[in-house]
Structures are given as structure tokens and as C-alpha cells.
Amino acid sequence: MSHKQIYYSDKYDDEEFEYRHVMLPKDIAKLVPKTHLMSESEWRNLGVQQSQGWVHYMIHEPEPHILLFRRPLPKKPKK
């Protein structure tokens, strides 16, 4: 599979999560399941490479070739 064609967005966040999206080329996108969110082993098997802790959290129906990921931000110590 062509890992060079996978595009990784910059990371962005809110108060709770860090987010990123990953755009897959058409040949890989056709392998994305339409019935469920992928486990880490499933998206890694497609060639997506990112650190541990990312969760495929949403399917964007109009653009199924874009995978939406998030992971919890580290808890800030209370002052």
C-alpha cells in the first residue's frame, strides 16, 4: 500500500481532546469499513501511522476517505 499518499493534518485541540484528521488515497479508502469505527489494529493495517492513544471517533459520511481521530489531553494538575 502507498503510505506516501496518506495525508496527516496538523493537530488541533479543545479543552478535552487533541484531534487530527487523516486523508487516505482512493485505493486505501475503499478498504475502510462503512459499518463501524475502526480499532487501532484496523487503521494501522491500512497503513495509518501515528502514536498510540488515537481513537477513530467519527465517520464523516460525505467524505469517507477522511478519518477523524482524537485522544484525551493530559490532565492538568490542579493548583
Rank of each mutant, 00 (worst) to 15 (best):
L31M: 10
L68K: 08
H56R: 03
V55G: 01
G47F: 03
R44H: 09
A29V: 09
I59C: 08
E18I: 02
Y19H: 08
Q52P: 14
Y57C: 03
E18F: 01
I28K: 13
H36L: 03
Y57M: 04
E40N: 00
R44I: 01
D10Y: 07
E40V: 05
G47W: 06
H60Y: 12
H21G: 04
P72S: 08
H21S: 15
R70H: 00
V55L: 03
W43E: 02
P33S: 08
W54C: 05
V32Y: 04
E15A: 11
E18R: 05
M38Q: 01
Q49L: 06
L31N: 09
V48E: 01
S2Q: 15
M58C: 09
V32Q: 00
L37W: 00
L73N: 05
S51L: 05
M1K: 14
G53F: 05
R70P: 06
M23Q: 10
K75F: 09
K78G: 13
G47H: 00
Y8N: 05
P77H: 10
E16T: 14
L73M: 09
D10W: 10
E16V: 14
R71Q: 00
K11S: 12
Q52D: 11
G53E: 11
I66A: 02
N45M: 11
P62Q: 15
F69L: 03
H36G: 08
S2K: 15
Y7W: 08
I28C: 09
P77K: 14
P72W: 03
D13G: 12
P77W: 09
S2I: 11
K75E: 12
Q49W: 01
S2C: 14
A29Y: 05
F17M: 00
Y7N: 13
Y57R: 01
W54Y: 00
K30M: 09
K78C: 12
R70G: 02
K76M: 12
D27G: 08
G53A: 10
L73I: 12
P62K: 15
V48L: 07
I66F: 05
L68P: 02
I59G: 04
P64W: 05
I66S: 03
P62H: 15
S39L: 06
R70D: 00
A29Q: 06
T35S: 12
T35V: 05
E61S: 10
K75C: 11
P72F: 03
L46Y: 00
R70T: 02
Q50T: 01
L37H: 00
E18T: 08
Y19T: 02
M38H: 01
D27K: 10
I66T: 07
H65I: 05
R20P: 05
M23T: 13
A29D: 05
S2D: 15
M58L: 08
P62D: 15
Y8S: 10
R71G: 01
K76N: 10
G53Y: 05
Q52K: 14
P62T: 15
S9P: 10
W54D: 06
S41A: 14
K76D: 14
S41L: 11
L67K: 05
Y8G: 04
L37Q: 00
E15T: 06
R44L: 07
E40K: 05
Q49E: 14
L24F: 04
L37R: 04
V32T: 05
E40G: 04
Y57P: 04
H56L: 04
G53M: 04
L68E: 05
Y7R: 14
D13R: 14
D14Y: 07
Y19D: 03
W43S: 02
R44M: 04
E18Q: 14
D14T: 07
P25T: 06
S51Y: 02
A29K: 06
L73T: 06
D14Q: 05
S41H: 13
R70S: 02
Q49R: 13
T35M: 08
D14G: 06
E63K: 07
V22F: 01
Q5W: 10
K11Q: 07
V48D: 05
W54G: 03
N45I: 09
A29P: 06
S51H: 07
Y8L: 01
P25H: 06
R70I: 02
L46M: 03
H56A: 01
D14N: 04
M1T: 13
Q50M: 15
I66R: 07
Y57Q: 02
K30W: 05
F17G: 02
Y19L: 02
V55D: 07
E42A: 03
M58R: 14
K34W: 04
S41N: 13
L73D: 03
D14W: 02
P25Q: 04
H36Y: 08
R71S: 02
H3D: 11
Y19S: 00
P33L: 02
Q52E: 14
V32H: 00
S2M: 15
K75H: 12
M23E: 15
P33W: 01
W43T: 04
H36S: 05
I59M: 12
M23C: 13
R20A: 02
E63H: 11
E16K: 13
Y19I: 00
D27E: 10
D10T: 14
Q50K: 01
V32I: 11
K79I: 12
E18L: 03
Q52W: 03
L67T: 01
H3G: 15
W43Q: 06
M38E: 00
S39T: 12
D27C: 10
D10L: 06
A29E: 05
L46E: 00
L68T: 15
D27L: 00
L73V: 08
S2E: 15
V48P: 05
P25Y: 01
L67V: 05
E40R: 06
R70L: 01
K11A: 13
V55Q: 14
L31E: 07
F69I: 07
I6K: 07
Y7E: 12
K79T: 12
L31T: 05
S9Y: 12
Y19P: 01
V55N: 07
K11W: 09
Q5P: 13
S51E: 14
L31F: 10
P62Y: 13
Y7G: 09
P74K: 15
H60I: 07
H65V: 04
H36N: 07
H60L: 08
L67H: 04
Y57I: 02
M1W: 12
V48K: 01
E16Y: 14
E63D: 14
P64K: 07
Y19K: 01
D27H: 12
E42L: 05
K34L: 10
P64H: 07
S51W: 02
H65Q: 10
K4R: 11
P64V: 03
E42K: 00
A29G: 08
K30V: 08
L24Q: 01
Y19W: 03
I28S: 05
P25N: 09
D14S: 04
P74D: 14
L37M: 07
K26C: 08
P77E: 13
Y8T: 05
G47E: 03
D10C: 07
E16N: 14
F17I: 06
E18V: 02
E40P: 08
K4C: 09
